[in-house]
Design a protein around this nucleic acid. Structure first.
Lengths: 344, 344
DNA sequence: CTGTTAGCGCCTTCAA
DNA sequence: TTGAAGGCGCTAACAG
C-alpha cells in the first residue's frame, strides 16, 4: 500500500506554501514563474497525483458523467457509449455507467446514486414508462441529455427519427406490392416503439390503406419470442409477405423462423431490419436495413452535456437534436410474387 | 440549483448530534432505537442523500471500480461489462469505464485517472504489448483483476483457455481431412492471440504435421483487412480449405470473401468462428463456433475484486481463474472434397 | 449510548 | 505574489 503524496508535501519540497503550490499546479491566480518551476519539479519528483476526490469535495464537481441505459450489452448502446466515452475522455471527464434493466425503480435508485457521487451530468437512455417529469426535475439540478425519450421542450435530448424511418421502410415495401407487412418492435410505451408504429401506419394511410393490426407485434426484445411469434404469423392464413424487425435479436428470431418454415428471403418473404448491425450486413442475403449513426448519437450527447457544463448550467435554451435515418438497400426485399392470393 | 441537505441539518432536525446522526444512518456503533427512528424520519423528511464524495474523502474508498478495455463497443467486452456491472450494482459499487483503444500510453493515463479518482479496484482487459510489471505494481496498491493477460503468479486474473480451444477446433478440422487451415487472429503479442496460435500449432504437431505458416495471419481486427486477406488466400494456389476466424469482424470479412469468390460454406470451404456472436449463430449456414461464457468472465472478475476489497487487500494469495471453452458444432464445417489435389 | 472534535486533501478567500 | 486559515460533508476516535 503506497502512501499517496499530497500537495502539502509537494509544497514543502518546493519550499513554498500550500496555497502557492495549488495555484502553481492549477495555473490559477497570480504565481511567479519561479514558483511554478519549483512546484512542477517537486510534483514530478515526488510523483504527485492530485486527489480527485478531495478536489471534487471542494469544487463541487466530480469530473464524472453518468450514463444510464437499459442494457449495456445492447450493441446499439455499446456504440453510443464508446463514442460518448471517447468524447468525454478528450475533455478530461470519466464515464460512470449503469444498467436499469428497464426497471423504473432501479432507474431511480441509480440516478440517486449518480447524484450522490456528484456526477456533473447524466445521459439517460429510454426506459419503460418514461416520465417527462423525472427528467425535467433532474435537469433543474444538473445537465441532462435524454436519448430517444419524450421529454418536454424544457429539457435537452437527442431523438432518432424513428417515425420517418419506419415510414420510409414501410413505403418501400408497399411500393414493392406488399400489403401484409408485419412490424415487430418492442417497447410500445417507449418513444422509439411508438414512433415506429406511427410511421408504419402513416405509410399505409398515405395510400388510403389500413395496416393489419394483428401483424403489429410488440414483444420483448428476445430472439425466442420473435422466433415463435414469427413462426405463428408465417404459418397462419394470410400471413405476412414482409417483416420489419427491430434490432439484432428480433431480426435473428425472424430469420430463423423463416428458415425453419422452409421459406426463403426475399423470394417468399421480404425482410427489413430497423437498426443496422453485423447480422443485417453480413447475412446472406444481406438485409435491407434502416440505419442511423450511433457514433454521432454518442458524440452529440456528450457534447451537449459538456456544453451545458461550460455554460455553468445557465438558462441556456434546451436543445433538441434530431438524428436522421437512412434506408440501406440490400438483397432482402423483393416484389410480392405469391400467385392466386387476394391482395388484402 | 437545489441545495443539498447535509447530515448536519438532519441531526438538528432530529434533535441529536452530528455523530449520532451519522451512526444512526450507517447503523454503526451503538445507537438507541429512538435515535435511529428520529434520524431516519428526519432524513426522509428532508430528503437527505449522503454525499458520496465527502464520504469517500473520509473513508478513503470511493465505492467505484474502474474497468479498462481496448474497445467498449466490442460485443465480447460489452457482455463482460454488463455482467460485471450487475454484480457491482448489487454490492453497491459503481462502474467507471474507459477505452484504451489499445494504446499503451493512453492506458497509463487512464490508470492514473482511475487512481486519482480513488477507485477501489481495477479490471483490466488485454492491451498491446502488455507488461506484467505494470499490473503487478498496480496490484500492490489496490485490487486488480486482469482479463486474459499474462501476469505473473503474483497477480490475480481470469484467463480463457484459448490454447485448448484453438487446439480443439483445429483438431476437429484435421479430423475432417483439412490440412490447409488458415488461422486469422489479431493481437499476436497479446495472450489470447499467442495462445491460439500455440494451440493451433500443437494440434498439427500432435499428428506429426506442420501448419502452413503463410496461412497464419494476424491482422488488425477489421473486416476490411480480413476480407482482402481472405480473398488473396482463397485465390492463391494451395489456398486454405478451412478458416478459423477470431470474432465477429474477421469472421464477417472472411464470409464475405468466400461469397465474393463464389465459393460456398461448407462445401468448398469450412469455417470456424472463435467467439460465438450473433453472426455465427444466425448466419446461413450457422457457423461452428468456439464459445465461452462471457457473463461468467464479467461476474467472476467483479467477484474477485469484491473479495479482495473485503479482505482489506490483505496478502491473500492471488487467484487465477481459468475459463473453459466449448466447441459448438453447427453447419459450417465439412470434409475436404477437393478432388485431384495433393494433400499438402 | 451520545456529544464533541479532529481531520481526509484540496481550493480559495483574506491579509500581508 | 505569497502565506495562513477556513471549510466542503462526512466518519471515527475520544470523552462523557
Amino acid at each position: 500500500m503506497k502512501v499517496r503524496v499530497t500537495i502539502r508535501e509537494v509544497a514543502k519540497e518546493a519550499g513554498v506554501s500550500l496555497g502557492t503550490a495549488s495555484r502553481a499546479l492549477n495555473r490559477t491566480g497570480r504565481v511567479s514563474d519561479k514558483a511554478i518551476a519549483a512546484v512542477t519539479k517537486a510534483a514530478r519528483q515526488l510523483g504527485y497525483e492530485p486527489d480527485a476526490v478531495a478536489r471534487s469535495m471542494r469544487t463541487r464537481s466530480s469530473g464524472v458523467i453518468g450514463l444510464l441505459v437499459s442494457d449495456l450489452a445492447n450493441p446499439l448502446y455499446a456504440t453510443i457509449i464508446t463514442a460518448a466515452e471517447t468524447t468525454f475522455q478528450e475533455a478530461g471527464y470519466a464515464l460512470l455507467v449503469a444498467s436499469t434493466h428497464n426497471e423504473r425503480t432501479r432507474e431511480k435508485v441509480l440516478i440517486d446514486a449518480f447524484r450522490g457521487r456528484r456526477v456533473d451530468g447524466i445521459i439517460m437512455g429510454p426506459c419503460e414508462t418514461e416520465s417527462p417529469e423525472l427528467v425535467q426535475r433532474l435537469a433543474k439540478d444538473l445537465p441532462v441529455v435524454a436519448l430517444d425519450r419524450d421529454v418536454g421542450p424544457g429539457s435537452t435530448g437527442i431523438q432518432v427519427d424513428h417515425y420517418g424511418g419506419a415510414k420510409q421502410a414501410t413505403e418501400y415495401l408497399l411500393n414493392l406490392g406488399h400489403r401484409r407487412i408485419a412490424m415487430l418492435t418492442p417497447g410500445l410505451d417507449l418513444r422509439p416503439g411508438r414512433d415506429r408504429i406511427a410511421g408504419f401506419e402513416a405509410a399505409f394511410q398515405g395510400r388510403g390503406l389500413e395496416p393489419l393490426s394483428k401483424l403489429i407485434r410488440a414483444e420483448k426484445s428476445s430472439m425466442e419470442f420473435a422466433f415463435s411469434d414469427a413462426l405463428s404469423l408465417i404459418s397462419s392464413e394470410d400471413g405476412p409477405t414482409a417483416f420489419i424487425c427491430l434490432g439484432t435479436r428480433i431480426l435473428a428470431g425472424v430469420l430463423q423462423a423463416i428458415r425453419h418454415s422452409g421459406r426463403s428471403v426475399p423470394d417468399d418473404i421480404s425482410v427489413i431490419s430497423i437498426g443496422d448491425t453485423d447480422l443485417s450486413q453480413l447475412f446472406s442475403p444481406a438485409i435491407t436495413a434502416l440505419r442511423w449513426d450511433l457514433s454521432v448519437v454518442g458524440e452529440v450527447a456528450a457534447q451537449l452535456i459538456l456544453k451545458q457544463i461550460d455554460r455553468q448550467h445557465n438558462v441556456e435554451p434546451p436543445e433538441h437534436v434530431r438524428i436522421a435515418t437512412q434506408l440501406v438497400f440490400r438483397q432482402s426485399c423483393g416484389p410480392v410474387t405469391l400467385p392466386a392470393m387476394s391482395q388484402q
